[in-house]
Design a protein around this nucleic acid. Structure first.
Lengths: 276, 276
DNA sequence: AACAGTGTTCTGTAATACCGAACAATCCGA
DNA sequence: TCGGATTGTTCGGTATTACAGAACACTGTT
């Protein structure tokens, strides 16, 4: 998020070489921002005019950037007048990047089973310095599609996967992680004090799984459990997500046991056989 | 495919402003090529020195490009000395791009069933001007992992998905597609003449599914069937992939019926309910 | 220790990414 | 049917900056 220009001044800061240089290529940064804007734009895609407005660059420059990205398949322009949306190259690269994480392949069949058992959307995350970074998702057959994209990190203290991982870490490490992330409130129910968090983690340990009761998203309910390979530091966590009102999320104990079992199965797969 | 430079001349063409300008941003193109090199490099990642060698740029320029990509999560540098590999942003973007294609969500459960029935890796592709562009993949539980990334196009005449789609197109349209793609031989068994292709498509029509018998990859066997929405022009195709020698690929008729049934089921889902 | 590799930082300059304006091609409502 | 407003595309000129090259820091090896 710490970026160069908030697209405020049209002429850009002329001499920002104050102290330390940044060693980044400006036009490339512009291009990647362009992609970001397409992502956060409407699904139908964005017109050049819209992109130009959001970029803070001239029309012709935006055009050249978009052309370059289209030429390489990072964007595709559909229709006439063209609307820019994400291209197939990104699908290819994302798939490739995912396949480099053997964990995602290992987790997927387990998640399929978990979703069948619970009727919920189940996901797996790797431990990214205390943050859960999601690398696999399996939607339940009839379930509502959640907006839970892969490749994103959630907060350690508001997600069930995050709390599941924190619960099996020493208090010192938890504090270190929270110092980095802070305890921002995502909803009214979010945990915002270290004392509350440690209490919640203690409950989590005794219960065997973590609960996120509308702490990250209003109306969304999550259960999570961590899995391991060697020491107590968790490798990652699985989570099951549902709507709070659904009857499927009533029997928390039973669902929690399923999540716990799924995590244990992944632990088994990781420690039993060699990953490679 | 029509690209600027095959990275041949190290200094690039200095004055290519001969007739028509290209309207592309050079440094962005460099950055995307850098990503390409990381993709085709070893899974462990590439060092800066290796990248510099493959890029035809100076070390410092390559460094600046890599830094920029790392800053945005397109690459990640692991270890010390750093090795560059694909980053999580690409996972996020790829997932986002895929989710913009509703077909992929519709196909996945059908493919799961198909893989369970056949024990093969099953995939779904959309019709991209006659080329099959793969948007979903489900590996069979115990199956060998094929190198079949999503987001890539296969050739119309060497893939079972491609031939399945061609088989339900008028001869005129087939010819038009083949004029674009040509009939390059991927293996010794590949079809290389239009006469052979039309004969094969006729067999495909009568059989109800397409067969790729080591025509795209030596030792790899594929069955495919197209699915539809409105007219006869297919929307896409499903395919099941296996190793030629496996006993699983013996009973071609039975497997073909499963593939055919899966495709029909998708057609049903597409025509029955509204996609959106 | 000296060396042969790395990756990182620095400076000048030539190239080019950017802007602004003009052009073309649509889609409106009048 | 016609303007008029909006879109996308093309075109020079100039100031910015992306680039090369060399110097620096760092690590492991002979």
């Amino acid at each position: 998020m710490a970026d160069r220009e908030p697209a405020g001044s049209p002429k850009a800061a002329p001499k920002d070489t104050t102290s330390g240089r940044s060693y980044t290529v400006g036009s490339v940064a512009h291009a990647l921002h362009l992609i970001d804007h397409v992502v956060s734009g409407p699904p139908a895609g964005m017109s050049l005019a819209e992109l130009t407005a959001s970029m803070g660059l001239s029309k012709s420059s935006t055009y050249a950037l978009a052309r370059t990205l289209v030429d390489h398949g990072y964007l595709q322009s559909v229709g006439q007048p063209p609307r820019y949306q994400l291209g197939m190259t990104l699908v290819r690269l994302g798939d490739h990047a995912l396949s480099a994480i053997p964990l995602s392949d290992i987790c997927r069949p387990v998640l399929v089973k978990l979703s069948q058992e619970t009727g919920l959307t189940s996901r797996a995350a790797v431990n990214d310095n205390g943050y859960p970074m999601f690398i696999a998702r399996v939607d339940a057959p009839g379930a509502i599609r959640f907006h839970t994209p892969l490749g994103v990190r959630e907060l350690p203290h508001t997600s069930s996967a995050g709390k599941a991982m924190l619960a099996s870490m020493p208090a010192e490490r938890v504090q270190q992680i929270i110092e980095d992330s802070g305890l921002p409130a995502r909803t009214a129910k979010s945990i915002t004090s270290l004392a509350d968090l440690t209490a919640d983690l203690e409950v989590t340990r005794q219960r065997g799984f973590a609960v996120d009761d509308e702490e990250d998203d209003p109306g969304v309910f999550c259960l999570g459990a961590a899995f391991y390979r060697f020491g107590p530091e968790p490798v990652g966590a699985v989570s099951a997500t549902g709507i709070k009102q659904d009857r499927a999320t009533r029997h928390i104990e039973a669902l929690g046991r399923s999540v716990r079992a799924a995590a244990d199965e992944i632990t088994q797969l990781l420690t039993g056989q060699e990953t490679r």
